[in-house]
Design a protein around this nucleic acid. Structure first.
Lengths: 235, 235
DNA sequence: TAGTGTGAATTTCTTCACAGCG
DNA sequence: CGCTGTGAAGAAATTCACACTA
């Protein structure tokens, strides 16, 4: 009884009224990109059907997703591109910058550091970090590589809240642990390992081999049905 | 009437009986990696609970996922690590190699080409391709960079069926079109654009900015609830 | 007895379909 | 009239819970 009451109360308090489903959150950045494209082409207004085409999804999904943000469309017209873009940016927390710390400057880490696309989009590289003392002190894309033991100070000094792990797999967990200790609350993990972190830390992973293996599954399946074709069923 | 009959027939023929849900397919590579880890540590048998811990998912989910492959576990014991690994590899089509063509050798493309992890896991780099004539002819990780106009011959000669797009966004769609024309059926896209391809071509995308923006959403949300804390509800 | 395999319940996500508004 | 916003239906994914068995 008591538990039920408490649970219900918490649900109300923790703005459960405005909780955006995870699947929708994951699509907001996609819409955002489409809106930016529209702005470049000086389109002022967009319908859910058009936006859906651009994003490669269903129009009903677009409307449902956007409805979680509020009623920002105009019936009979569509959405004001500029205004909608602002609202999505606000919802995603993109009205401020989120400095990023990159740990691990092998091939991938260096590529990430050199890739300008982050800074533009509100994720400036705050620091580069490696454990290899021969790399520490050298520069990549204008940033001096710092040693992993300096992680705490670096995070503190730069107010970084997002960490990118681009290390070899065997050290990724220990890097994650250090990041969490240093106060990082969001991690983007490129190492092919499952990281264990506290509940209040968000993790997203990018795993290239995993993606290729998924492609392999569907490719193989299609190959098999092509080699032994079904022919016309209704023939 | 006729339509219903045909539909039902096709469902039976196209091994609809054994269709593995997309969400499960996407987790198989994860289990595979865990099994490989277990093999390295010479563990012979694993329970769904243990595997779930390693993969960071629910144990019931592991059992359900694996049950789609068949009944490869032993009640009261668990799964034979080696055998299960083989079955997953077979299901994913990993008993053969899938040569990969990388198009676009900027920072990211070069990092991918230099990353050894692909070849090991059954995805050898078959060819590197770029449009920049100053790059064509140079070598990256032992491979000579070929020109995009040679894509058809290269795909034919190497039997590549998977293409990786690591080009700037503006040319990604035209590269995808060329890949499809050349016979590529699976594409891993790193460019931040939504690609349009025929239904029989599989696409997976990796979008760094998008991942960071998703992290930003949850970070912001948590920041807000920390700044204005709720306090103990049951207090 | 420990742990799989799986129907059934539950939750989450997607899509439909249409009332209602500009 | 055209298009949004949204209940309701439907589909997919997850989780529960337990019969069953090596």
């Amino acid at each position: 009884m008591k538990t039920l009451t408490i649970t219900y109360y918490r649900e109300m308090v923790e703005r459960e009224e405005r909780r955006i489903p995870e699947a929708s959150v994951a699509r907001l950045p996609l819409y955002l990109r489409c809106l930016s494209t529209l702005i470049e082409t000086e389109v002022l207004t967009v319908s859910s059907v058009r936006l859906a085409e651009m994003a490669g999804v269903n129009a009903a999904k677009v409307r449902k997703d956007l409805s979680y943000l509020g009623s920002y469309g105009t019936r009979g017209v569509g959405y004001d591109v500029d205004y909608l873009r602002f609202q999505i940016r606000r919802e995603l927390g993109l009205t401020r910058d989120w400095p990023v710390v990159v740990v691990g400057l092998g091939n991938l880490g260096q590529a990430l550091a050199n890739y300008g696309g982050f800074g533009d989009r509100g994720f400036p590289v705050a620091a580069l970090i490696d454990a290899d003392t021969t790399k520490v002190g050298t520069r990549v894309h204008g940033h001096v590589i710092r040693h992993i033991d300096e992680l705490d100070e670096v995070v503190e000094a730069t107010s970084a809240s997002i960490g990118i792990i681009a290390t070899p797999a065997p050290v990724a967990q220990s890097v994650a642990d250090r990041m969490v200790d240093a106060g990082i609350r969001s991690i983007l993990n490129f190492a092919p390992v499952v990281l264990a972190v506290p509940d209040d830390v968000s993790i997203r992973k990018v795993d290239l081999a995993l993606e290729l293996q998924i492609l392999s599954f569907y490719q193989e399946r299609d190959d098999l049905s092509t080699v032994a074709p079904l022919g016309e069923v209704g023939g």
